[in-house]
Design a protein around this nucleic acid. Structure first.
Length: 576
RNA sequence: GCGAGUGUAGUGUAGUGGUUAUCACCCGACGUUGCCAACGUCGGAACCCGGGUUCAAAUCCCGGCACUCGCACCA
């Protein structure tokens, strides 16, 4: 992993100087892993989130929800986070190295992950586990190291235990019944959430890449695992992607492939996963990520969560090397089933109509519960279920009945009545499967800026341009009076107000007494795409010059035309 | 969390027991300037925090916090 430290420093210095991103609470010495977006970065973050959101909403069957970050212990226990995030650490008293207790015990006891602190300590001494650093067996007591931020609901001590959420996804799962109704009980559909996630990292490093509180955006897409998927539909406008398949799988070689062939070859294992890989790729291009510095890396079987059947990370190459920025996982029915089990709810499922209704018309032995109950007591329920399950009812009583636990009981004449049973089965309940694309927004923004930031030579000097796409630029335009005289300042101010009043546009103005070249440079550095200059001619004929950030060419148009072009974002057409 | 290194204006830096704390960019005001980091004058802005040693600490020592690197961690 090669880190381009010089470029990291250059970018971070600029971010701090221009109000993009900086360490949070520096006033009080700073806190590792927490960052502020400043006046410029705040705009970029918001616009990135909006583009992200609209990218998915435009698919037509996706909705946005918003749920609390404070999440009850029970919810995160059901989701598996409490177990997964509550590893125990143990310190060597001799050399002070800190190790994970369950990792030390791997191979010595079964499933060490499940042990509590006391059991771990007992196991460590029982198996005389040596410290990997100094080979002594002198361990301090193990202590939970919780990667979630604990809190408590209610201001007094006995409140319900809770955590700040480590991901936004649980909100989509716990809201599934509402979303299912919203979509008129018809799969497939999805829900997204843009918000904060929290992980109490042991040692956050790499600047914005690993934070303790971070911006994330997740999509949970619910599908019927048995539904046919139309490949051509899913892979519309197919383009080649850089794929790095599981090296231990059947297709070990990296390749560039379009999605349909990759699906046909079994490299990508599910068409809906492929669909979201393509859509993710398009979104990244729209945000200004360099297509040549993106790749999809497939998780190895043992890297994936046990319930997942396929998982691809979108990795982006930047000055920290290849960084995982998006994870697209096929999570099967794991999440909804886990919550159904823990909550006892019957609502976390979907109804599938059979193509043809199944008409049942049979003669069956209907249990007489008043007799079966006393006769079989604890097994009565099982007996009744087994009776209802038999398709070919014996013609006469008594008859033997095999229960689900394998034992055989005798059904006497008075325990059943022969009856003709007629009903229709129109469909069945099932737990939908979930495809989850999860985005680390801060990581994406870092790479947008990294890929957009150009240092060019201009008249022998280094010159910085942030070539962000118009849609994520911190300002839509900057208004500049050429000079601070002859009414140009006033004219610029009124033009600035006019642009401000157009819904959706956020311009800025740089009117103070610096040279025009310096003010162009300031705007270029933070990526403002258009510089509108009010000059002498403006005062005569109402035209202004529009300068393009990326090639520094200028056109002259009327103010009315300018406002129109800004409103419809068509200025770029004039520079092609 | 361990080990090593580092912490000086907004940014990048110089200095290393006694300085009015260096330099550049920067930011602002005024003047000048007919379009790409011009110029002049004036102004603004810093020794990470806390303790100790000392007549004197930004400088030496200790502790904290933060950053960088290595180890560990990263569902």
């Amino acid at each position: 992993m090669s880190v381009n430290e010089d470029r990291v420093q250059t970018l971070m210095a600029m971010f701090k100087r221009r109000g993009v991103v900086r360490p949070a609470f520096e006033l009080y010495g700073g806190v590792a892993g927490l960052f502020d977006y400043g006046p410029v970065g705040g705009r970029i973050l918001r616009r990135t989130q909006e583009i992200w959101l609209h990218h998915w909403l435009r698919l037509g069957n996706i909705v946005e929800i918003n749920s609390p970050t404070v999440t009850p212990h029970l919810v995160l226990e059901a989701s598996g986070h409490v177990g997964a995030f509550n590893d125990h650490a143990v310190q060597c008293l001799s050399c002070e190295a800190v190790e994970r207790a369950d990792q030390l015990l791997e191979g010595h006891v079964n499933n060490p992950d499940a042990l509590d602190a006391a059991q771990l300590d007992a196991a460590l001494s029982e198996h005389a586990i040596e410290c990997p650093s100094c080979s002594t067996t002198d361990w301090a007591g193990s202590a939970p190291m919780n990667l979630m931020f604990p809190t408590s609901i209610g201001p007094v001590g006995t409140g319900r235990s809770a955590f700040l959420r480590p991901e936004t996804a649980q909100g989509m799962f716990t809201n599934y019944p509402s979303i299912y109704r919203h979509f008129k009980q018809r799969l497939p559909f999805g829900a997204v959430q843009v918000g904060k996630g929290y992980r109490n990292e042991i040692s956050p490093r790499q600047g914005m890449i690993r934070q303790r509180e971070f911006n994330m955006a997740e999509l949970e897409y619910f599908i019927d695992p048995e539904a046919e998927v139309n490949l051509a539909e899913v892979a519309r406008n197919d383009v080649p992607l850089n794929l790095v398949p599981d090296p231990k799988g059947a297709h070990a070689e990296s390749l560039s492939s379009e999605m349909i062939p990759a699906l046909e070859a079994g490299i990508v294992r599910h068409p809906v996963v492929g669909h979201f890989m393509l859509e993710t790729y398009r979104l990244m291009i729209q945000l200004g990520i360099d297509p040549n510095r993106m790749r999809f890396r497939q998780h190895e079987q043992d890297e994936m969560a046990h319930y997942a059947s396929d998982c691809w990370d979108l990795e982006i190459h930047g000055c920290y090397g290849w960084i995982e920025c998006v994870g697209i996982a096929h999570r099967g029915c794991y999440d909804l089933e886990a919550h159904a089990l823990a909550s006892g709810s019957m609502e976390l499922r979907a109804w599938r109509e059979h193509p043809e209704p199944i008409h049942v018309d049979k003669t069956a032995w209907v249990p007489v519960q008043a007799k079966i109950g006393p006769a079989f007591r604890g097994d009565a329920k099982m007996v009744i279920q087994s009776l209802e399950a038999i398709d070919d009812a014996p013609k006469s009583t008594p008859f033997p009945l095999t229960l689900t636990n394998g034992s055989v009981v005798t059904i006497e004449e008075d325990m059943v009545e022969s009856r003709r049973v007629r009903y229709t089965i129109n469909g069945e309940w099932f737990t939908p499967h979930v495809i989850e694309p999860a985005f680390g927004i801060d990581r994406i923004i870092w790479h947008m800026m990294d890929h957009s930031f150009n240092q060019i030579e201009k008249e022998g000097e280094s010159y910085d341009i942030m070539r962000l796409p118009e849609d994520v630029a911190p300002y839509d335009a900057v208004v500049l009076p050429l000079f601070n005289k002859d009414g140009m300042s006033e004219k610029a101010e009124s033009l600035f107000r006019d642009i401000c009043s157009i819904p959706g546009l956020v311009p800025t103005i740089d009117a103070f007494g610096k040279s025009i070249g310096r003010r162009y440079a300031r705007a270029d550095e933070i990526g403002i795409p258009w510089a509108i200059t009010v000059d002498h001619q403006t005062m005569e004929d109402g035209t202004v010059t529009v300068r393009s950030r990326d090639d520094q060419r200028q056109i002259r148009i009327t103010i009315d035309n300018l406002l129109e072009q800004l409103r419809f974002r068509t200025l770029a057409d004039h520079f092609n």
